[in-house]
């Protein structure tokens, strides 16, 4: 499946946000669910091999946008002869704009082969919270192959550049350097940095990046422990409550 979806938020001139563009194709369906909120409502299981999905997000000066999802994404094997499934997310946040990306986890079902590419560009004076959770296999299942490739730029410089590969084709991914026995990992980027540095308890750390931002990472045997560590950091900001 091929899908191209796009959301563009801009200021309505009265302190609120209007969606100048909200266009979506299955399975990347977008629904406005609040003044600042859009939900990814999905369209069946997936991504599957052969899927080629792209989501473009833009937040203009003075606008605030929150993107949530109604359910986890389940990356599935699909037909073996097809290329790996691919989801590209491109986001820009202008100065004075706020973007909160907070979807449900992606689950790497056994046999899947999926790539998520994330490119976010935040202008100086823009504000970003970017959450990504990954679960390696459904309950009691081996992990499929998933690679995430993330670049977050702030004020014209690369703030965070990270790739993570899990699954049978990722050497050493279940060794003690990468995830160990952990089968769930969550990351939360805040730019500029919005929470204090800390480490522990458990496999959890909030780290000041070299540039103006923070990364919170949690690794755990299951997603609930990851959520318990990261969710409290991402309480919607005042501009996003409604």
């Amino acid at each position: 499946m091929r899908a191209r979806s796009r959301v563009a938020a801009e200021s309505d001139g009265r302190g609120g946000t209007r969606l100048a563009v909200l266009r979506s194709e299955s399975p990347l369906l977008l629904r406005r669910t609040g003044p600042h909120t859009v939900h990814l409502v999905g369209g069946g299981a997936g991504p599957l091999r052969g899927d080629d999905l792209r989501l473009d997000i833009s937040v203009a000066p003075g606008a605030a946008l929150e993107i949530l999802s109604v359910a986890a994404q389940l990356a599935l094997p699909g037909q073996a002869h097809l290329p790996q499934s691919r989801l590209e997310i491109h986001a820009t946040v202008a100065s004075g704009g706020t973007l909160r990306w907070w979807p449900e986890p992606m689950i790497a079902a056994a046999g899947c082969n999926h790539l998520t590419v994330t490119r976010v560009d935040v202008a100086e004076g823009g504000s970003l919270l970017w959450r990504d959770d990954l679960v390696c296999g459904r309950h009691g299942e081996d992990s499929g192959d998933v690679r995430t490739d993330t670049t977050i730029r702030y004020a014209g410089s690369t703030l965070y550049r990270h790739e993570l590969s899990v699954g049978p084709h990722a050497p050493g991914w279940s060794g003690a350097a990468v995830l160990g026995d952990g089968r769930a990992i969550g990351t939360l980027i805040s730019a500029p940095g919005a929470f204090p540095a800390t480490a522990g308890p458990g496999d959890f750390a909030v780290m000041p990046l070299a540039g103006p931002g923070m990364l919170a990472t949690a690794v755990a045997p299951d997603i609930r422990a990851v959520q318990a560590a990261l969710d409290p950091l991402g309480k919607p900001t005042a501009t996003l409550t409604h």
Binding site: G193, P196, P208, G211, P212
Partner: peptide
């Protein structure tokens, strides 16, 4: 608030101390 202030890590302009 700049996070560097909390952790005294190198950042910003190069070369870094």
């Amino acid at each position: 608030m700049h996070p560097e202030n909390q952790h005294s890590v190198a950042g910003g302009a190069l070369p870094h101390p």
